[in-house]
Simulated assay, not measured.
Amino acid sequence: MNSRTTLSMLLCTALLGGCATMPTPANLPGARFQREQQLENQPLATCSLPGAPGVIAHLVHVDANVFSGSPDLVGPGDRLKLAVAGDAETLTGSYVVAANGRLTIPFLGEIVAAGRPVSAVEREVRQRLIAGALVRDVAGGVKLAQVEAAGVQVSVEGAVFEPGLVRAGERAADSRATTVDHPAGGDFNSGRSLSAALRAAGGIRPDAAAQAVYLVRGDSYAVIDVTPAFTGGVPADPQLAAGDRIIVPSAGCFQADYVRPSSVTAPGVRVYLSNLSRPASSNSASAINRDSTSFPYGTRMLQGLVSANCVGGSAMNAGRKAVLISRNPVTGRSVVIARSVEGLVRSSDRDDLNPMLMPGDAIACYDSDAMTFVDAVGVVGSLLGPAVLVNGLKK
């Protein structure tokens, strides 16, 4: 091989080694939603309390305490125990409210139970028994008690991560068996609450108007302030009934104070990690598994990079770069940002460049410029080796 060919190979190596490992990601205007993302020179959206949703236009506004202080309402799947004086088997026993919300009792037919307090259902059962001459009009002769409160289906919409229908208060089979085998005078299902339904829907988003959450039930609604879940105090947390509707308006801006575990946010998030840089050749070699991709809500990008084994290592590969792939929860636009790993570790203004991780975010690591040069040398060497061998054989 002549000197001109060798020089050309070395020049190619230098050019490949000088190539940028990752061009600056391009993003559409309006994709930025966190101050720490530092994207285009556009101001962030300002917070504003949205107007009332249109669905409540013809409903009656009631105080939140009306829902919080009202008796629990019977729902489909609830188990009720009927005790009739002087009866052991015919009428006395346990009954489950059907999916249509009705209770079927021998000789009485179907009784509408869902959406009513147990006391109201008891009065109707007693009146029907007396009207049918099945029992005497004696005080305390008919008792109806709730022995199991099943989960209820409610709708959650607006500024939550997973809007839609959720089952609030659904219990495991072993828990239900224990409740049935050891009945008590009543049952309290903590999962049938407003806060539990919000968590079941992925928790409120950082842009939520937490001071004005709407709970719609029948022809009435209440506006509930859940900010005490973050600031302290006891927020209103009414028990839910089947068919309730929860609406969380959006304030249109990112509020970092709401990005942490609480009674109305998810305790953790799942993030996708990729570290295919040296010295690791695969995600499994980087010890990236289910445990390392689950973080407490409020974790920042730098902590995610540590979990992906992108921080530290040899001096040659310490200057890695990383990208965060996220989505603006308000506009729905995806956003990709690039960060220098060592810059996040060493810079004093790291807090201004270290975004918070949202559910479903993804982090990917790239090799440093030094390792890119090494790889370029390897590519050229793989081409240069056979040529040198052929040239030596000719000689």
Rank of each mutant, 00 (worst) to 15 (best):
A131Q: 09
D181E: 10
L198C: 05
Q153S: 13
P117D: 12
R205F: 05
F188P: 06
V213D: 02
I130C: 09
T178D: 15
D187F: 15
S155M: 06
V118W: 11
E162H: 15
G115M: 07
G140W: 02
P183F: 03
R192L: 00
A131N: 12
F107K: 08
G109C: 03
E162W: 13
E110K: 14
R167H: 13
D181S: 15
E124Q: 10
F161Q: 02
R192T: 05
S175G: 13
P163Q: 05
F107H: 11
A173N: 03
F188E: 02
L108C: 08
S119I: 06
R192K: 09
G141E: 13
L134F: 06
G115V: 07
R205I: 07
E157W: 11
A209N: 00
G191Q: 06
R192W: 11
P183K: 11
V135T: 08
L144S: 07
F107N: 10
H182K: 12
V166M: 08
P206T: 06
Q211P: 04
G132L: 02
A209P: 00
R167T: 05
R136K: 11
A172G: 15
A149I: 01
Q211L: 09
A131I: 03
L198H: 10
A150I: 05
A196V: 04
R199C: 00
F188N: 04
H182W: 13
A212D: 05
A196W: 07
G151K: 08
G202W: 09
Q146F: 02
V112D: 15
E110W: 06
D174A: 12
G185N: 15
V156H: 12
S193F: 03
P163A: 02
K143D: 11
G169T: 06
A113T: 07
E124K: 04
V142K: 04
I111T: 04
A210K: 01
L165W: 13
A149M: 12
Q211I: 00
R116V: 13
I130H: 08
D174Y: 13
G141Q: 10
G109N: 05
P106D: 02
G151P: 09
L144D: 10
A145F: 02
A212S: 15
G185L: 12
G202Y: 06
E148C: 12
G169K: 01
V154M: 02
S193L: 00
A114M: 07
G109D: 04
T178G: 14
V112N: 07
V112M: 09
A159Q: 07
